[in-house]
């Protein structure tokens, strides 16, 4: 008897969640750009899309966006919730990545707010030909500050003005050495390393940049120092050496000009 009553009532229970759905009726979803292009490298600066919600109703509301994608895609967020004033675009970034070796294809990411839905096309691109062999490869660091990104030093952006969004520094203030570099997935020939350390009008290299570092390459499990720089005050520093087939490359940073953090805007590596 109890069981029958209970089962009969199940549909009523499922009708309960009206409130959250109703708020979605006046929310417009946006995503920029479309399609989203993704390159199957771990630190490549692609796959970025700005999600948006605009409240087109008459009263401010709270909205929950659900973000879902094909299983081939890794999404940096599955939820975007916000207070929405009337007629104001509210934005949140989404990053889409795919494993190395993913074949070119088109996928979709679904964005839903209540009954509103937007399908965002996602195009997986082939890995482009690169002179800078570090670009987009998996960065490895001794530590990374909470406000910085591990990939920030190999994302192709060497502009010190965009340091905050696109650079790297360690999380051990005043403690050296720090290390930053790349582990290659296959043996790669490197003969030149270029460091762009922080060097802007506000934060000149002579004050905030990396001062002392060793460039090292690894073959198998053996690290070899291929160049050592001391007393640097420049933003862009090149270390050239006889090309070597290596499994990894890193900087061992021994001091910076403020003796605080090791700040890398971009680290590049070339075959010669």
């Amino acid at each position: 008897m109890l069981r029958r009553l209970a089962l009969a009532a199940v549909p009523l229970t499922l009708l309960v969640p009206a409130v959250a759905v109703a708020t979605g009726n006046h929310v417009e979803i946006s995503a920029t750009p479309q399609p989203v292009e993704v390159v199957p490298l771990p630190c490549f600066p692609a796959g970025k899309v700005m999600l948006g919600m605009t409240n087109t109703g008459r009263k401010p509301t709270i909205a929950d966006m659900r973000v879902s994608g094909d299983s081939a895609l890794t999404l940096s967020r599955h939820q975007f919730s916000s207070y929405l004033p009337v007629d104001q675009l509210v934005k949140a970034p989404l990053e889409i990545t795919v494993p190395r070796g993913t074949a070119p294809a088109t996928h979709t990411v679904d964005l839903t707010v209540g009954k509103e839905r937007l399908e965002v096309p996602v195009v997986i691109k082939p890995v482009p030909a690169r002179d800078n062999l570090l670009l987009g490869e998996q960065a490895v660091a001794s530590s990374t500050n909470g406000n910085m990104r591990l990939c920030g030093g190999v994302d192709g952006n060497a502009d010190s003005a965009q340091w905050g969004a696109s650079g790297w520094h360690d999380n051990t203030k005043g403690v050296f050495p720090d290390t930053y570099g790349v582990d290659f997935v296959q043996t790669t020939t490197i003969g030149r390393v270029v460091l762009q350390t922080l060097d802007s009008t506000t934060y000149p290299a002579a004050v905030m940049g990396i001062r002392d570092f060793d460039a090292q390459v690894r073959t198998g499990s053996t690290w070899t120092t291929v160049g050592a720089i001391r007393g640097n005050v420049q933003g862009r520093v090149t270390v050239t050496f006889a090309p070597l087939a290596v499994d990894a490359l890193r900087l061992v940073i021994r001091d910076s000009n403020d003796h605080g953090y090791s700040r890398i805007v971009e680290l590049e590596g070339y075959s010669s």
Binding site: S76, R77, Q79, S81, S82, G146, R149
Partner: peptide
């Protein structure tokens, strides 16, 4: 989770 690595500003992140 890596979702916690950045500074927060959206409601889902504060939650």
């Amino acid at each position: 989770p890596v979702d916690f690595a950045g500074e927060i500003s959206t409601l889902d992140e504060y939650r």
